[in-house]
């Protein structure tokens, strides 16, 4: 563990807590893409299958359990409790356009052709594009609530911090995982446009609005 990975995990945790807080306080999931949340639940489910078979640390296990539980709880809130506030008209990104190609790629490009490894690879590739329905929804609605932009900033920062973690681990541990690094860079690049808007607008107290 290094400071970048710890900050990254905390940023990820913060993002999830911000989202839950937003939905709980406003009793609404307006502006949030349910499809992205479904993809995140799929990411965690396929990535943490070794939850019971390999023990790394208490921290690792509790974080995995929290990520899995919170992702399904978020889906429950969006599609059940606060269903009336779910904006399905603007959440129209076709998930199959992401899941199918990513599934195929995971079969073709992986470290080992084993079920657990292919599922882990699928999860890494899927996570890199899972935010697209959410970004697509923000671009369709043309704006996002300020708390939603904080959620996206924390979520985008987590994988950016992980990139620093991989640089650190490469030089200090000699650890390097090309698949995770490439997917992590793609994932972070997808946020660049949003990062720019967040820093130039939201941090100046303005609302996040995309040029129509």
């Amino acid at each position: 563990m290094n400071v970048f990975r710890l900050l990254g995990d905390m940023s990820h945790l913060l993002a999830i807590l911000i989202l839950l807080l937003k939905m709980w306080k406003t009793r609404s999931c307006a502006g949030i893409s349910g499809k992205t949340q479904i993809l995140f639940a799929l990411v965690f489910t396929t990535r943490y299958l070794d939850l019971f078979s390999s023990f790394i640390s208490i921290y690792n296990t509790t974080m995995k359990l929290f990520f899995i539980a919170s992702s399904y709880f978020t889906i429950f809130l969006m599609y059940s409790k606060f269903k009336a506030t779910y904006d399905s008209n603007h959440d129209s990104f076709r998930m199959e356009f992401l899941v199918v190609p990513v599934g195929g790629l995971a079969f073709l490009v992986n470290h080992e052709f084993l079920p657990l490894e292919i599922l882990w690879t699928f999860s890494i590739y899927l996570e890199s594009v899972a935010i697209l329905p959410q970004l697509f929804m923000v671009s369709k609605t043309g704006e996002a609530e300020t708390i939603t932009s904080h959620y996206l900033f924390a979520l985008g920062s987590y994988r950016l911090l992980y990139i620093f973690n991989w640089v650190y681990r490469y030089y200090f541990d000699g650890f390097f995982d090309l698949i995770a690094v490439v997917a992590g860079c793609v994932q972070t690049i997808l946020y660049c446009d949003f990062f720019y808007l967040y820093i130039t607008k939201v941090l100046k107290g303005k609302k996040l609005s995309l040029p129509a």
């Binding site: 995990d9 882990w120 390097f176 698949i179």
Partner: peptide, 10 residues
């Protein structure tokens, strides 16, 4: 590229 190392990242 010891990616096969135990998956210790979240």
């Amino acid at each position: 590229k010891d990616s096969s190392a135990k998956k210790d990242e979240l």
